[in-house]
Lab assay of single mutants.
Amino acid sequence: GVRVRALYDYDGQEQDELSFKAGDELTKLGEEDEQGWCRGRLDSGQLGLYPANYVEAI
């Protein structure tokens, strides 16, 4: 996976979405899909989806 850092807070709206705060680091686990979602893993171990444009590569 690729380490990325959140640029903005994001509150997951669905069960399969991650929630994070600006500045949090997570691991991107795949390329974004056509809707702009990426699969990732928080350092807590939680897996889920997040909007790709909310993070930057570290």
Rank of each mutant, 00 (worst) to 15 (best):
V4C: 03
D43C: 07
E32R: 13
A22Y: 07
E31C: 13
V2Q: 09
L29W: 05
S19I: 03
L49C: 14
R5I: 15
D24H: 05
Y50P: 00
R5L: 09
L49A: 10
D33G: 11
E14D: 13
T27K: 03
T27P: 01
G36I: 00
E31I: 10
Q13M: 08
L42M: 09
Y8C: 04
Q35I: 15
L7C: 09
Q15G: 10
G36M: 05
L29E: 12
E32S: 13
E14G: 15
L29A: 05
L7A: 01
G48F: 00
Y54V: 10
C38I: 06
D16R: 09
V2E: 15
R3W: 00
E14P: 07
S19L: 02
E56I: 06
E17Q: 15
Q13W: 04
G1S: 10
P51C: 08
D43L: 07
E14A: 13
W37N: 14
E56N: 09
R5A: 07
L26A: 00
Y8S: 12
K28L: 08
S19C: 08
L18H: 01
Q13G: 09
Y8T: 13
G23D: 05
L18N: 01
L7E: 03
G36S: 04
A52M: 13
P51R: 14
E32V: 12
R3T: 05
E14Y: 10
E17M: 12
T27S: 11
D9H: 04
Q46P: 05
G36T: 03
T27H: 08
Q13S: 09
L18A: 01
Y50Q: 02
Q13R: 14
E34F: 06
W37Y: 11
N53M: 15
E56G: 06
D43E: 12
E25N: 13
S44V: 03
R41S: 12
G12N: 10
Q13T: 12
G23A: 05
L49Y: 10
W37P: 02
D24L: 04
S44W: 04
R5M: 09
R41V: 11
L18S: 00
R3M: 06
G30Y: 06
A6N: 00
K28C: 10
E17P: 02
G23N: 05
F20N: 00
D33T: 10
L49H: 15
G30M: 09
A22F: 09
F20M: 04
R39T: 10
A6W: 00
